Simulated scan of single mutants.
Amino acid sequence: MDLGKKSYSIEQVKEMDLVGYLSKLGFSPAKIRNVDYWYLSPLRDERTPSFKVNTRLNRWYDHGLGKGGNFIDFGILYHNCTVGEFLQKIDAYFSFHKPVLQHTKQVIAEPKITILQDCIISSFALIKYLEQRKIPVAIAWQYCREVRYGLNDKIYYGIGFKNDAGGYEIRNQYFKTSSSPKGITTFNNGAKNVSVFEGFTDFLSFLVMHQNQSKKDTDFLILNSVSFFEKARTFLEAHEVIKLYLDRDATGQNYSRYALSLSEKYKDESNLYKGHKDLNEWLVNIGNNSKKQLKQKL
């Protein structure tokens, strides 16, 4: 990285050292375990450290929030600003300070998930999980697989959603993880429009809501992590209209605002599920509310 530059690209900022930046903000790790630095969360009040930075990946995860990501994802949450505003803050900050670069020391690699088998979803627990999320198994069968995977000499299973790079997003009732390589998932139907989702449960929820409509009316892109938004822009901006169904939390809304500032092609559709975290939560609650209203009438 050229330290003489007065402005930094999104890709450059993403790879700046999180541990170094946290130190400059006044946060020190409460404990260090190999490549993992644990902090009292800078994003909320807590007494037990649950905010982790993995120095090998230079990525963070806040277990209390259930959110994580790269340097920019942290910055927009910490400063409660848009991506563009955070880049301006970084430019201003580093006009007085040297950039904190990512650690280059060698570290011990973390255990990796190994996919052992994928098959049609048939486990009772996974079908029940889909039912709880209001997603018919017939729809899930079209896009997901039941995957068995190994981790630390143990075998686990979950609903697997494959990305374009060959890795899986994996979910069950108690846990969510992913296998390498990480990446986006696209469905190209040759449409002029594209619908964008953070995760595959929101994508499946959209399909549930539009069961009687042709799936070829729109292309689909599932980010699998908002940190892939920049890489997804080439595919997205080849379309005439880009409909955003991102989460209604700080990170999702900041990315939506950032996208709207890029082009008039982008449309924020999240008002559909206003009052809910995401599209799937809205779908689940709509179903519950309908049952409550039915009971009241009876």
Rank of each mutant, 00 (worst) to 15 (best):
Y168I: 06
I159E: 00
T186V: 09
S178H: 09
T177M: 09
Y168A: 03
F175I: 13
Q173N: 14
T185F: 12
S180L: 15
N189P: 08
K176Q: 14
G160Y: 01
S178F: 07
F175L: 14
N188I: 05
I159F: 01
Y168T: 03
K162G: 02
F187A: 05
I170S: 07
E169V: 10
D164S: 11
S179L: 06
K192I: 07
I155E: 15
A165H: 08
Q173D: 14
N172Q: 04
F161K: 06
K182P: 06
K182F: 01
F187P: 01
G160S: 05
N188T: 11
T177L: 10
K176D: 13
R171E: 02
G166S: 07
A165N: 10
T177K: 05
Y168G: 00
G183E: 08
T185E: 00
Y168W: 12
P181Y: 08
Y157L: 15
D164C: 09
N163Y: 03
G160W: 01
K176H: 12
I155L: 12
I184E: 07
F161G: 04
A191G: 09
A165C: 10
I170G: 05
I159D: 00
S178M: 10
S180H: 14
K192V: 10
K192Q: 15
Y168E: 00
Y156D: 07
G166C: 08
G158S: 11
A165E: 14
Q173W: 09
Y168F: 15
N163D: 05
G167M: 03
Y156C: 08
A165I: 00
P181T: 10
Y157A: 13
I155D: 12
K154L: 14
G183C: 07
T186Q: 09
N172G: 05
F161P: 03
A165G: 01
F187L: 12
K192Y: 13
F187G: 02
S180C: 11
I159K: 02
T177A: 05
A165K: 14
G183Q: 07
G166M: 05
Q173M: 13
G158M: 07
Y157T: 14
G166K: 02
A165L: 12
F161C: 05
I184H: 06
S179G: 09
G167L: 03
K154H: 14
K192W: 09
G158I: 09
R171V: 07
N188V: 09
P181K: 10
K176G: 12
K182Q: 08
T185I: 03
R171G: 07
Y174C: 14
N172F: 03
A191Y: 11
Y168P: 01
K162H: 04
Q173C: 10
Y156S: 13
G166Q: 04
T177H: 08
G166D: 05
G190H: 11
E169I: 06
T186R: 12
S178D: 09
K192P: 00
A165S: 13
G158V: 08
A191W: 11
Y168R: 00
E169P: 04
S179H: 06
Y174I: 13
I159T: 06
F175Q: 14
S178Y: 07
G166E: 03
G158F: 06
Q173F: 11
D164R: 07
E169H: 04
T185Y: 09
N163F: 00
Y157W: 12
Y168S: 02
E169G: 08
Q173R: 13
